[in-house]
Design a protein around this nucleic acid. Structure first.
Length: 266
DNA sequence: ATGGCCCGTAGAACGGGA
């Protein structure tokens, strides 16, 4: 089973690339962020024709998330939850559903704009509420515990580069938004709670990133950040057979500034 | 040189992204 996440920066613009990518890769579950589409305009029919059932939560202009499920292999998503019940929010950044026994949480973390700004404060509060909401959904790690949840994966654009190795220029980015200690502490709180960073379960090339600035020839210079992640519970992590960032879509004409991340579960 | 690009909403610039 292959699960993936991709911030498409407008699904209207990127739909042909998404369809091409899905046709070329056996992706079973694809989480999208920044669809930037109201629900009435979500291309559910085109995706269904391509074999994917989708659930989505959008708004005009900004944000928007979706989960796409390959009908033939995993069927339609069930038990859909929009947003975080612990954090009422006008911004559409969170959707979760159960797919073939896996709880899939698709998240578009706030950007935060600048350390100390109101948006940064919102980002930290949003993440705190996510942690409070999702931690109890993790399967119990003690074998005797009777509160075990189902396997769970948290995929999305976290807007956090967890460590200096995830940053093309750690000195320039030191303490900046996406790299600040409070953000990284929250990422590690998720790890301590029982999530595993799929990407770091496997050997990876140095300077592996998932986002590159459109400006300054960011992609050509590999001046990027690794901010898109696939976290899975520890038991599911033992089923991982690989995790990779697919840079190919970033090379296309009119690309998203993010590349998709893919993890494979046995 | 603190901005360069891209997207949506506009129907010109501007907010937002990261």
């Amino acid at each position: 089973m292959q699960i993936a996440t991709w911030n498409v920066n407008s699904l209207k613009v990127r739909l042909p690339q998404v369809l091409d990518w899905l046709a070329a890769h056996p992706i079973d579950v694809l989480c999208l962020q920044e669809t930037k589409l109201i629900d009435d305009r979500f291309p559910a029919d085109e995706l269904a024709s391509a074999g994917y059932e989708s659930v989505f939560s959008g708004q005009p202009t900004y944000n928007g998330v979706a989960i796409l499920c390959r009908r033939e292999t995993v069927g339609a998503p069930t038990d859909v939850v929009i947003g975080n019940p612990l954090f009422p929010d006008e911004q559409k950044r969170l959707i979760s559903a159960t797919v073939a026994g896996l709880r899939v949480v698709c998240a578009y973390f706030p950007n935060g704009q600048a350390v100390g700004s109101d948006k940064y404060d919102y980002k930290l509060r949003w993440i705190d509420a996510l942690i409070e909401w999702i931690s109890p959904q993790l399967p119990a790690q003690a074998p005797a515990a009777d509160t075990a949840g189902c396997p769970i994966a948290l995929l999305g654009d976290f807007n956090i580069a967890p460590a200096s190795e995830d940053v093309h220029d750690p000195v320039a980015w030191n303490g900046q938004v996406l790299c600040s200690d409070p953000e990284r502490e929250r990422f590690h709180t998720l790890i301590r709670a029982g999530f595993v960073d799929s990407f770091r379960m496997f050997p990876q090339a140095e300077r592996s990133f998932s986002w590159w600035d459109y400006r300054q020839l960011g992609f050509r210079r590999n001046a990027g950040l690794r901010i898109d992640h696939i976290l899975v519970d520890r038991l599911s992590a033992s089923r991982l057979t690989g995790c990779r960032i697919d840079r190919e879509p970033r090379k296309l004409q009119q690309p998203s500034d993010h590349a998709p991340v893919v993890a494979e579960l046995a």
